[in-house]
Write a protein that binds this DNA or RNA. Structure first.
Length: 304
DNA sequence: TCACGTCAAGCAGAT
DNA sequence: ATCTGCTTGACGTGA
């Protein structure tokens, strides 16, 4: 079991997700921004490794507008050295990486242009991971998409589009249940047809489900992960008290998390915390998990 | 330096 | 018809 956080480390004054407005796009602006992002990513990874935080979700803003037609920089060539170095840090540190492109990646849209841009978006995320030399346990997660008034048609469109994707994209892709349209049971149907692993979002599942228990959901999603895919990934967050249902908490609730860790004692998986205060909540969660489960995963420090 | 309107893109549900 | 949330606040103009 590894526990991680996404995008930003609030202990640092650097950001690995700096971006800019498309109106201020230039070659130079892109290169400067990405250079800053990659430098900061290195710092975050060093910090994470020395603190036994071995799971990290890299923001899609690491390469701003990478899927947009405005882009005229060959970032794989431009940042070859940096990407390869970061990849070695990740490998040497026993770190797991995920990415989660935004709400505009919709493979099942009835609009062809939306599908094409979604494929471009997925493509660069996969190329980015490939450029770092990451193994097949590094994943790009996204949702099934919209319903468009006909769920089974919408699911078929997803399957058809997905099966046409090249292998380097298929092997990185993982689906995640969302909080209103496609729950675990829907995602499982798609998962079986596409042979795509399924991330269980515990919080979404609590808001939108077909009556399955947490145990059912964890068992069925865990089975979608093949040997090369690594441990199943689970997204976890708490409800912000007093806010509308669905609002993520600012800090993890240690008691709730302990209940979760106890309730899932028969399973091993990696947990991505989707909680506002980032690394702070990870420290709390790691302490809880170690208390219940003992030693988790050691980080492997680089040799030199 | 700060406030605050806006940010590439889609979709569904609430108001 | 318009607003909100999504995975995430931050960019950037104007004062």
């Amino acid at each position: 079991m590894k526990i991680g956080y996404s995008s930003t480390n609030w202990s640092f004054d650097c950001r690995a997700n700096s971006t800019f407005r498309i109106g201020s796009y230039s070659r130079d602006r892109f290169i400067k921004t990405v250079k800053g992002n990659l430098d900061c990513l290195k710092k975050i990874l060093e910090y994470n490794i020395s603190n036994d935080i071995l799971f990290f979700r890299i923001s899609s803003d690491i390469l701003p507008f990478a899927g947009h037609s405005i882009l005229n920089v060959n970032w794989r060539r431009e940042f070859k050295k940096e990407l390869s170095e970061i990849g070695k840090m990740i490998k040497n540190g026993n770190v797991r990486i995920s990415m989660h492109p935004g709400q505009y990646l919709i493979l099942n849209s009835p609009n062809d242009e939306v599908v094409r841009s979604s494929v471009r978006e997925l493509k660069w995320h996969c190329q980015f991971m490939d450029a770092m030399g990451l193994d097949n346990t590094a994943k790009v997660q996204f949702h099934v998409g919209g319903v468009y008034g006909n769920r089974s048609d919408a699911m078929s469109r997803f399957v058809n589009t997905f099966l046409e994707l090249p292998n380097f994209m298929k092997k990185r892709a993982v689906l995640e249940n969302d909080d209103s349209l496609y729950g675990v049971s829907d995602c499982l149907l798609v998962s079986y047809q596409c042979n795509v692993p399924l991330v269980l979002d515990v919080f979404h599942h609590s808001l939108h489900n077909a009556g399955e228990t947490l145990h059912d959901a964890l068992l069925s999603t865990s089975r979608t992960w093949g040997r090369d895919d690594g441990l199943p990934m689970v997204d976890y967050s708490s409800q912000e008290k007093g806010a509308l249902p669905g609002r993520h908490a600012k800090h993890i609730d240690p008691k709730e998390f302990m209940e979760f860790i106890k309730a899932t004692s028969g399973y091993d998986f990696d947990i991505m915390l989707e909680i506002k205060d980032k690394e702070k909540s990870v420290f709390t969660a790691l302490n809880v998990a170690k208390e219940i489960r003992g030693v988790l995963q050691p980080s492997l420090k680089p040799l030199d």
